[in-house]
Write a protein that binds this DNA or RNA. Sequence first.
DNA 1: CGGTATCCAAGCGGATACTG
DNA 2: CAGTATCCGCTTGGATACCG
Lengths: 126, 126
Amino acid sequence: MYERKIKRTYICGLDIISEIIGGKWKPCLINLIHKNVLRPSDLQRAMPRASRRALTIQLNELEAHGIITKTIYPVLPPKVEYRLTEIGECLLPITIAMDNWGNEYMDQFKHLLEGKETEQDEGANP
Amino acid sequence: MYERKIKRTYICGLDIISEIIGGKWKPCLINLIHKNVLRPSDLQRAMPRASRRALTIQLNELEAHGIITKTIYPVLPPKVEYRLTEIGECLLPITIAMDNWGNEYMDQFKHLLEGKETEQDEGANP
DNA sequence: CGGTATCCAAGCGGATACTG
DNA sequence: CAGTATCCGCTTGGATACCG
């Protein structure tokens, strides 16, 4: 198990929430699970740009932090489902607002951020 | 100037907003500027855990992204003030909600995240 | 006071191969 | 299908010293 070399301190609220949803794919995972995309393979399909490893790690962290629960069905082939906890659902107003904000200003920032490109469709995302 | 080796793609709204407020101190900066902490030295005092370099870089990025404006007063000693743009103010519902969420669940997560420690007061933060 | 330059540690996460 | 282990490169940001 990996142990941080630099201990973290949590003083203001932003320290906490950045630990909870700061991971690259966490807000996306939360929103997808809320939309009933519950199984790892479905999540993977929904966010093809994330590696399986990244997904597993972030799902584990979300579970450890009490944001989601993990249900393992003892069947073959294995079946796992994640669901939001009550606390996890409290995050939805934030994660959804983030997604909405980004979509609203998407056009404006796409050019700014990507330099000059115009369009280019790649893997789909929620 | 540093140039990314890995180009980024912005497909969903979360990609965009994470680029805008993903920096470690950005939500904090936005909230502080909104609270009329406008000058670099005041911001630095308000968030003693951030290095001057980190602050400068993130302020520059926020400015480049059109979230804040920078006003340089031609006086001695130099005086600089940052202010939120209209778009920047649209972020407030999100950044403030993040801070509130974290504060609300602070106690619950502090123990979980810090391992077992209880209290320890360090630098103050908003 | 405000900003820059250099150097470098540590983290985050991708690629790949493997298990049950 | 779901998860783990190893390796390794990119990026972030801290420390420090210095300029206008």
